[in-house]
Amino acid sequence: MGVPILFRPLKEISELNQHGALMDKAKLKKDIEILLIDDKDVPFLEFLTRNDYHIKHHNDLTDFNLVKSFDIILCDVQGVGTSLSPTLQGAHIVKEIKKLYPFKQVIAFTANPSDPDIVPHLHTADKFLSKDANEDEWIDALDNCIQKYSNPVKQWKEIRKMLLDCDVSTKSVAHLESNFVKAIQSKNQDLFLNTQNDYPDISKHVWEILGGLATLIKLFAPS
């Protein structure tokens, strides 16, 4: 029986202000796993791989558990996800990923961005590109996403909002924040993810979402 959580000294997210900026860009690029979902060959895949992005290409997505281990998702809006949603196709995948893993970065790309069935759903992605985007646009989009994804402060602020929206008490949010900071600082994800029993007011579903943060915390661990 340790010190009751109420009396443990709390860490604040501002302590990580420099963390994102101090990350080694080359290491980040190496560590960040990108999932590409497209039913066709992607001409730029070779170029991006040559530029040290770690991209795994899947022709479709039928199980969202596959997404868990990836940090960034590149998803075609047409031709994939037809078994999950025949009408929205890839747009449905994008929407679901952002629902299940709000902190993962999703780039949607399409050959026809003006398709009226697709446009209303494009804003759910963090960024969208047309299929013939040039090399600068692809790199710009990926680097931006890497930067946003690896910024623990920004990420936590989003998570904090989500937790409060899910009616998690402010006390629990404060303690979770402290654990998150500790996990990043000590590069030990267990300090955050193995504390589930301390928070009876957090539902299983919310914990599942928080569980996805493992990939983010892992980025700060020594290679």
């Binding site: 001409p43 070779e46 050959a111 299929k131």
Partner: peptide, 24 residues
């Protein structure tokens, strides 16, 4: 017309990727 436009982008992407390969 829509399908033709739909096809132009992937083809254009092929052209761009080919340019990069040739450049390299």
């Amino acid at each position: 017309t829509i399908n033709s436009f739909h096809e132009i982008r992937p083809l254009n992407a092929e052209v761009k990727a080919a340019i990069l390969r040739i450049k390299s």
